[in-house]
Computed example of a mutant assay.
Amino acid sequence: MKKIVVLSGAGISAESGIPTFRASDGLWENHRIEDVATPEAWERNPTLVQNFYNERRKQALSVQPNAGHLALVKLEEKYDVTIITQNVDNLHEKAGSSTVIHLHGELSKSRSCVDETLIYDIEGWEIKAEERCEKGSPLRPHIVWFGEAVPMMDIAASVTQEADIFIVVGTSLNVYPAAGLIFAVQKGVPIYVVDPYSPEIQKRANITFIAEPATIGLTQLADQLMR
């Protein structure tokens, strides 16, 4: 069975109603990134950061996967599919995808502030201020903030090297280290880039651009690959 590896970004979630991470004005839901998505922000104002992610979690629970997510699930009928996502929502899982690697963490989980291996599923949408891990530390969102290491990166790079087909969807390929995964694709492997804005990437052989949003482009691509 051939292996498809997918790198997904905010564009695919946007079509389900989740605002993209960074708007053109540099704000995320009217907040400066530096105020809600860095370790320093957490140290400075944990209540603001916790409330921000609680609201994002509530928002994510209210939306559903779109045709793009479902097209990737369809591919599992013929291929071994691994999705590497920059998104922190669980729309890929909700759609039914079997193997999802979250590079930037998961909104539906919390973790200890003193032991990053202590990770917990969140019931509902809220991490309450009084909640603690088993070591007595407050719980923080299980999100990789700016300035933090990306622990799943090595695994993602290893999986990418195994790809027989590589698909990029809904990402500008401007956020590193995730954007660097395209350079881990083995020479000769076909790459499909699904994005209405066709992100600029280093020219190489075997790249096909599909200048459509995920709902249209992935549906078309899945139909083609399933023949």
Rank of each mutant, 00 (worst) to 15 (best):
E131S: 13
G11D: 04
E106Y: 13
I182F: 02
A149C: 07
G9N: 01
F183D: 14
I122M: 07
I119A: 02
E134N: 09
I4K: 10
A95K: 07
T171D: 03
I207C: 06
F166A: 03
G170T: 02
F183P: 01
P190H: 05
V100L: 07
H69W: 02
S98L: 09
E106M: 14
V6I: 12
L218G: 00
Q224L: 08
T82P: 07
V193A: 05
E148I: 10
L107E: 14
P19R: 02
I33N: 02
A205Q: 14
I216P: 00
A10M: 09
D164K: 14
A184K: 15
C133E: 04
T208F: 07
I155Y: 10
L75V: 13
L218Y: 03
K78M: 01
V189S: 07
I33L: 09
E40I: 03
I155G: 00
T160C: 00
D195K: 06
Y192H: 08
I143A: 06
K3Q: 13
K109N: 10
K2A: 12
T160P: 05
I207H: 00
H92Q: 03
K109R: 07
I18S: 05
W145R: 03
I4L: 07
L27A: 07
S97Y: 03
I155H: 12
C113K: 06
Q161G: 14
I122T: 10
D154W: 00
H104G: 00
P141I: 13
S16N: 11
R22Y: 05
G11T: 10
F183R: 10
R204A: 11
Y53M: 12
A205G: 15
I143K: 14
Q224C: 01
P65A: 12
